[in-house]
């Protein structure tokens, strides 16, 4: 996803604050109106209890990832999943509709025109996520954080509550296989990080963007392989997927930035190191080659899809992303050691 353009990085001040306020209202209004796009296939939201942790996601044809996705987040302690299915034809919807902790909506409307699904998800968050910790993740993103094997999201959010934080940021870390893309086999229901288990330990660059004050972190393997000549287009890696939601909040750009503005400061104190996690990005499972062919023709991703034809072509060409400087993923302690995440004082 492309982040806010750097033109927006200018003009701080009161006027912008006022403008952002209206921007947020506009986004909320759009989202509110987009509720008509959604048809409920399985509405189990009545089972959501106070204090439950919710996961919100939009997906299309993720049958190979869903079993592990659900397994991973259930294990972390997500109590309920709010899912928008954007026209899957591979059985994803059936699988989801059968899950006791999933509420499912379907839409055939344009993903791109719904701000890449954000309008739909914002509506669901507005409707069901108020005062809940909500997690916005894609089906190919697995959140991990310090001590995630032994401590649940409830432990984490409890601690965040105690320390007065309502936002938890995460770094999107692209995992890739050792050989050429598409040459591996992945058995749905097994851990995808067994198939794609290498990553670039750096480099990342960060800059702060105005007027929203969000951090813009770029870098990593996709930049190295596909965007070296167009670094300003390279993927945004910072996310704020876990927020103690209020119906007045709105994500602006995927889960990279949000309004009100202070949510963007949640993952970066002026000094010191705040807590943050990592979203393991399993995009480069073998199916990515075929999917890229489809996505290239659908043109539903990116603000300016024509700019990204080369990106899809790069993936379709089945490159080997692995290099001798690649690092094999072994766990969160390694990622913290490498500076990709922070326990932020949570010991």
């Amino acid at each position: 996803m492309v982040s806010v353009s750097s033109e927006q990085a200018r003009h701080p001040g009161l006027i912008d604050a006022y403008r952002l306020r209206w921007k947020r209202r506009r986004l909320l209004w759009r989202s509110f109106r987009s509720r008509h796009h959604l048809t409920a296939l399985a509405d189990r939201t009545g089972r959501i209890g106070p204090g439950d942790i919710l996961a919100v996601t939009t997906l299309r044809n993720e049958i190979t990832r869903l079993p592990w996705f659900l397994h991973h987040y259930r294990r972390l302690g997500v109590d309920h999943f709010l899912v928008v299915d954007n026209g899957s034809d591979d059985g994803s919807a059936d699988l989801l509709a059968r899950q006791p902790d999933v509420s499912l909506w379907q839409t055939a409307h344009s993903y791109r025109e719904a701000r890449f699904g954000l309008d739909w998800m914002t509506w669901l968050q507005m409707r069901h996520g108020h005062r809940h910790w909500t997690l916005m993740v894609d089906a190919d993103e697995l959140l991990i954080y310090a001590h995630h094997e032994t401590r649940s999201l409830r432990d984490l959010t409890g601690w965040l509550d105690r320390t007065g934080r309502d936002v938890f940021g995460a770094h999107l870390l692209d995992l890739y296989p050792e050989g050429p893309l598409g040459a591996q086999t992945h058995d749905p229901g097994t851990d995808p990080t067994q198939v794609v288990n290498w990553f670039d330990a750096g480099p990342c660059r960060a800059q702060r963007q105005r007027p929203m004050g969000n951090l813009w972190v770029q870098g990593g393997v996709r930049e190295r392989a596909f965007f070296a000549d167009r670094p300003h287009r390279s993927p945004t890696l910072n996310k704020i997927p876990l927020i103690r939601w209020s119906r007045r909040f709105a994500y602006v750009n995927s889960s990279h930035s949000a309004l009100p503005r202070r949510l963007n400061f949640g993952y970066d104190g002026p000094g010191g190191a705040a807590p943050s996690g990592v979203l393991l990005h399993t995009k480069f499972l073998p199916e990515v080659v075929g999917k890229s062919e489809i996505e290239k023709s659908r043109s539903q991703h990116f603000h300016d899809p024509d700019q990204f034809g080369g990106y899809y072509d790069g993936i379709i060409g089945r490159p080997t992303l692995w290099t001798p400087d690649s690092v094999r993923y072994t766990g969160w302690r390694q990622l913290e050691q490498l500076g990709l995440m922070n326990s932020g004082g949570w010991t």
Binding site: D268, A273, P275, S276
Partner: peptide, 8 residues
């Protein structure tokens, strides 16, 4: 270290 959650 300049990253997601440390950008002094």
């Amino acid at each position: 270290l300049y990253m997601q959650s440390r950008f002094p």
